[in-house]
Design a binder for these strands. Structure first.
Lengths: 333, 333
DNA sequence: CTGAAAGCGCTTACAG
DNA sequence: CTGAAAGCGCTTACAG
């Protein structure tokens, strides 16, 4: 490892070729046709650059250019399919559009979240997508102050456009599915329990609304103590259910795959293995369809959400509009 | 959105404060004590910077500095816990060490993989970690040519140090577990099937070795047609098993959670739901423990692998050593 | 305690 | 078809 080796620059290339740095630069960044540089020169430069393992110094290049083409995203976690999928699709869709994506993971930590946003701004991002952010408005305020566009995804904010799932409708339909399967398979009609999430979280609140509305429509009253929302973690879900040993048919609405882990763990510890339980989950995981009692999952439409995000980018005036994307329902049998 | 707004620079700050850009710069980047700048000046600068929403221009700053502190990682996919975990822990461990992580996802595409590596090099990374790369040596060669350290993780290469799991031992132990559970629970002893992966892939080969060794030790001969390695995808695994309807006890060694999806799907389609099947999986997923017939999973020790990677960074001469990290066994019952 | 000046590696009008 | 020159926003010796 030649540690203190200086990287090859366009000056090195220019010297060795016997041309000017300007010409080398033009060849390397593709503007050489409009500068009418001879094809032979271009060819020689390209060949030498290849041989020397030349790579442009992005820092120098971006410093000089007026646009960075960089687009940043903060994401809370990679611990479930949803955010992993978002990060992955964001990267490939950005590249397809000629943009350079940078994604950073904030550990669901509000301070890291803001630090991450600042870091991306100092990379000169042209737009910053806050995904699942706990405090998107703080980020939007900051972005606005420095003239950078910001967009919220998954969790809405009030200071920038937001693209989120239609949580109400998804939850409504999932609730209907669980109810009808309870009736058909267990001959039971009754209030479902809602497990996981936090009421201060917009998505949980909207899903709970859909959950309640679907039952109200069937004349089912849901007791307050059936709403078990004290966090997302698997452990929390398991704790909340710990005392509960259903002695007959029951139904559960599980809010997120993280909570689902706890639910399934609780279920498998029941005397009868929870044979009389049916549940559905708002969130998708490929192993979900093989879990006993799972009647269906709501899959958020990441691709359409991102399509909408990209449409918003560079769309001039950004109002704080809220775009809701329908979810897909995965039904198991 | 003030689109064409110029960002605040240290010159703006200096003018408004009535100090020189040098002093402002020193205050902002923390070198001001050694430059013995007055605390009052420092305070005023910091306050104004805060008010103006100043953020350093990373491009300009890095261009001037001699070290970037940037450390890059390419990762194939975020479609399972393993790589998501790696990316996430890499980011936080890098920050803990005062480094700036950049992770890019290459879609398991060899060309994107190399492009990603080049992109990171042009960001002036000081070290590039190739995780699960299909052609790590190509990347190492490139890095060496431009004087950047490279390290392989998960999948080994021959041109740079590699930190990988001890696949042989993990597979050996998992095979023993499956065999003993087949015997205990099904009263059956016999050769297991190996499902998923690719023989050209170092990890699959090492795991297959462990798989065969554990059976050889017990005097079990594994027929060649029991080795079903034609790729990782869930669909592939399901296809390979499609014709197979065991009419008695059987055991499977599943190579990766991706393949596991296909296995479980095949299993759930069997007449008896696959009650007489026991299997284990080389790879960890939290839902795995709830799958019927799953006796255990091998969890790769991401944290220890990354510890080793970070120890290697900046460690001077990089030999192409191979560091094997023991896996953890998760046993279900 | 502080400032003037050089320069990091590029890009881009501008002038041939 | 090509080059000289300015300048992007910083950092860092160097000289007070």
């Amino acid at each position: 490892m030649k540690k203190e080796m200086k990287r090859t620059t366009i000056y090195d290339l220019a010297t060795r070729i016997g041309a000017s740095p300007s010409s080398v630069s033009a060849v390397l960044n593709g503007t050489w046709k409009k500068r009418r540089i001879s094809a032979k020169l271009a060819e020689r430069v390209l060949k030498l650059a290849e041989e020397e393992g030349y790579t442009v110094n992005t820092q120098a290049s971006l410093l000089r250019r007026e646009r960075s083409n960089i687009i940043g995203m903060i994401v809370p976690k990679y611990d479930n399919r949803y955010f992993g999928d978002i990060a992955e699709k964001f990267e490939s869709m950005a590249r397809l559009r000629g943009l350079v994506p940078i994604v950073t993971c904030t550990q669901r930590n509000p301070d890291l979240e803001f630090d991450g946003a600042k870091e991306l701004v100092s990379y000169q991002v042209e737009c910053l997508i806050s995904t699942g952010a706990t405090d998107p408005d703080r980020i939007s305020d900051f972005c606005q102050a420095v003239g950078v566009q910001s967009i919220n995804m998954d969790l809405p904010g009030s200071k920038a456009a937001s693209v989120i799932s239609d949580n109400f409708t998804g939850a409504f339909e999932l609730t209907e599915l669980i109810l009808s399967r309870c009736e058909k398979e267990l001959g039971w009609v009754g209030p479902l329990r809602f497990v996981g999430g936090r009421l201060s979280d917009h998505n949980t609140a909207a899903r709970l609304d859909g959950f309640l509305a679907a039952q109200r429509e069937r004349g089912i009253e849901v007791p307050e103590e059936y709403i078990l929302v004290e966090g997302y973690s698997a452990k929390k879900a398991e704790q909340l259910l710990a005392g509960f040993e259903p002695n007959g048919p029951t139904g559960l609405f599980v809010n997120s795959t993280i909570s689902l882990e706890g639910v399934v763990s609780w279920q498998s510890g029941l005397p009868d293995g929870g044979k009389m339980i049916r549940y559905g989950c708002f969130d998708w995981d490929p192993f979900g369809s093989f879990l006993p009692g799972n009647v269906g999952m709501v899959e958020q439409d990441v691709e359409t959400m991102l399509d909408n995000v990209f449409d918003l980018i560079g769309s001039g005036e950004s109002t704080a509009e809220l775009i809701k994307i329908p979810c897909k329902m995965r039904v198991f049998d």
